[in-house]
Design a protein around this nucleic acid. Structure first.
Lengths: 200, 200, 200, 200
DNA sequence: ACCTTCGGGACTGCCCGTTGAT
DNA sequence: ATCAACGGGCAGTCCCGAAGGT
């Protein structure tokens, strides 16, 4: 990879962290300069405006987070364990994550008023992809005979994600993961209840 | 009430709306000037700094939202119906609310990085009060024999609130309440399952 | 007059000088800050943008220059002497003028490409007023029987002004009035030739 | 001619047009990049600085314009017709010219404050050459017995050029050649009056 | 007591002309 | 001739006081 590409990636990763922790409008170019060690011109060589950098950094953050989840999910054999992997991924998100600052989609959903419509659009799309991803896991579980057939995949996905994002918000607010531990066990139990018990 | 007091309240209500919709750091004094019709000096006469205004506006927003919920809860006789009132209150929050922009506590939790510690403190406190409030409803329900005794009040409160806040976030993101309707029915069912069924 | 008004006038006079000598796009707000002794905020309190300041400063410069000419013209009794006063006014313009930097209309005509359309519009209007002003003097001279009747007032005004502006440009370029002295005597002779000689 | 030389000429021609229409300080290197299709470095390879490019582009523009005039003048047999050719050349300058944007000398005379002294120097020299050129035509006319002997060649040259440049400025300002047509006929008549009438 | 008018200065995103390494 | 980086300058906005006016 060429040097310019590396710099570009470096800027994206630092900027994504900054945007995700401080907020897209609050993080200034000066902050990004400080975080990257580059001067103003150096950044503007790669991104024509703060807005463009914001958008690409958001995509970067979503990509990183999504990849992490996908990888952990793929390592699991059953639908139930896949969903548990999602729960665990969200649980660790508040303490340690590929892009610091929690879930970029939620952060953007809350921050982006209508003055950054493109960003909101991307957040919508990312969230929809996440929901579809969960939904598909559930549907696969049903198709495989692992989950009962009366589970509504779409609704359950929404429910699970809402809970996880809300829990993540609480963790962030209280700077502590303890509040959300029960939430994880609740959902793991709930998901187990979706399975066709063979014996037990 | 004196004229100054009225102006002060007016500023608070307009500022709270602005802060809650646009974000505390993004909403500028100029925006507030435009929203209130006052000049800069006029605002500074009542609030010594933007930070102070932010804090008081946050308290104002929480007070308004809390009062609304409390009133709707108090109108209900049983613990179950009280909790349902909470759920309904959150559901309407995204479309119409005393202070526009959704839940100020969540908004602040997400926005406030460590550069506004006092604001985060207040958000923490407000959230803790909300959790305790829900917890108390549940505890009362148990004490009254309405709920089963093995319900963990604190954990259940956290779970419920996390879900509701997460759902609110989704509604905001998709500018639509439809995604969260199943969430409400899920929790209403869940809560009914807490009750000692007498007959029915 | 209130203090703010005085400051505003002061800014206009300094800015007009700066714009007229250095050019409208080249003179920066920092230059104006230095020339006025004000900080940025102080200037932006009176003028919402550089563009607005440019426009008002142009009007100011034209007003000053126009007033000077008008006053010198009004002091003369005959059409011929009025026109000579105009010639003299232009002659002194290059060395000493109410707003330094020569004729603001010509400067603007040359500088303003199509990126400052409003400014060009005002320059057009100002030039048209100047032409009409000269034309009227000539017409009055004809009406009074001072000038021959076959003088074309509009054409002659255009000719005179073109010459004077061109001469002014040469003076500016060579930083010397000497080149344009013959120009003045030429036009004064030409104008005398317009008069109905009574005796002589 | 080598490829590098061709590129250099291309840059000069595009840059000269840009400088002459938008102004020397306003036209940016980015504009020139866009106009030439080269990268910044590619330009800096041929010209060590914007200033040097400005100077050479000015010379280029003057050379082009001068050559055009000279060619049209040389095609004429008599001094009178040569001067008329000059007048016509200036007349067409506002609509169509080798380097767009009117007379580079006047443009530079107006724009160049004392921050670009070298450019002003060149403008002075170019103007002086133009004046001398006209002067020489007149002198030749006198020597040939075409013009009366009491014509002051230098003064008349200055007068003519001042008028033509002033007229050009008016044309530019009003985006119309109509204002300056009388100016041309006036000078053509004036010049005919310089001739020793043989009979007619 | 309440509000406006005026000014200050630091900071914002952005663009400039310029230079080396490649 | 490009690509990558530099650093300072641009116009404009921010939050904030102090003086003045009613």
């Amino acid at each position: 990879m060429k040097k310019g590409q590396l710099t570009r990636e470096m800027i994206l990763s630092r900027a994504a962290a900054l945007f995700n922790t401080e907020g897209y409008s609050k993080a200034s170019l000066s902050d990004i300069m400080a975080a990257t060690g580059l001067e103003k011109g150096g950044i503007y060589n790669h991104f024509g405006s703060k807005e463009q950098l914001m958008l690409e950094a958001f995509d970067y953050a979503v990509r990183q987070g999504g990849a992490r989840i996908k990888q952990q999910v793929d390592a699991q054999p059953t639908a139930e364990s896949k969903l548990c992997a999602v729960i665990d991924a969200f649980a660790t998100l508040s303490q340690e994550s590929p892009v610091p600052g929690g879930c970029p989609v939620m952060n953007t959903a809350i921050e982006s008023d209508d003055s950054m419509p493109e960003l909101k659009e991307r957040a919508k799309a990312a969230m929809q992809r996440l929901l579809k991803f969960i939904e598909q896991i559930i549907k696969d579980g049903i198709a495989e005979g692992e989950f009962k057939e009366d589970i509504d995949a779409a609704e359950s996905a929404t429910l699970l994600i809402a809970s996880l994002e809300g829990g993540l918000m609480l963790s962030k607010l209280f700077s502590s993961a303890s509040k959300t531990r029960p939430l994880q066990t609740f959902w793991k139990n709930e998901i187990r209840s979706w399975t066709r018990r063979r014996k037990q």
